[in-house]
Amino acid sequence: MSQQQLQYKTSPYRLLKEKVASTTMLILTLSALLLVVLIAVGLVIKSMPILEEKSLVDLVFGSSWKPMKGEFGFLPFIAGTISVTLVAIVLALPISLLTAIFLTEYSKDWVKKAVFPVLDILAGIPSVIYGLWGVLIIVPWISEKLAPKFVEFSTGYSVLAGGVVLGVMVLPLMVSLFVEIFSSTPAELRQASQSLGATKWQTTKKVMLKHTRAGIFASVMLSISRAMGETIAVLMVCGNIAQMPESLLDGAYPLPALLANNFGEMMSVPIYESALMFAALILFVVVVIFNILSRIILHRLQKNS
């Protein structure tokens, strides 16, 4: 008996490995968390100089951007970011919702097999190429065909162009998120509705969309966060004019574009660098607030259903 016990005694190395493995993973997980905090702290420190010189309200709600004269109002950029993102989501949401409904509820298997790889390709195209497509096709179309019907003149580099390009970019993401959510609806729920004599469309509209509304909301929020940070493609078609966009055909200047265009240049002016860092901080805070808000709303939705 004692002989046997000795033989099967656990090797100390086995337990040691277990400890090492779990600690390593814990550290790696924590470092991801720490990174977020570090980025926030770094941005705050870097933007301190401009915060000391000007009040927060002036910076966020000021609409005059003249760095050489020392006027730093970020409102045009915030408005630019929000309007371009909004246009993108408004364009992409109905298309992606209906596409996802078609793919999960109506289409035959071979259609799905054909469409999903195409969506993956769409999602994998580098954003520069979307930008080029915008410059070559969307921008001329707006300035030559669409804009003359509404305003006297537009270059075509506008909120609308940015929204269209961004909308096409988030489309594959939204479709695949929606498809995932819709296919997680229990089959019994559909059958329950259909065995009352409901058509597929009635079932989709009244039962499935209602059942999945929390998920739909979460995916839209995720897409918005993604869209807000998109830089290159938007920068190429938005016009990059620091003004409050008054219509869809006006040029705009989203925050990421401001950073990408100016960082590295004019770094000789310290206050300017600090201003750009503050722009990054605003973007960061907007995205964080957005995430927190969407979590709260999501929680409410789930509790109610």
Partner: peptide, 11 residues
């Protein structure tokens, strides 16, 4: 009318 195995109230 179908009454399924598990009750399945609509949401």
């Amino acid at each position: 009318g179908l009454l399924s195995q598990k009750p399945c109230p609509l949401p």
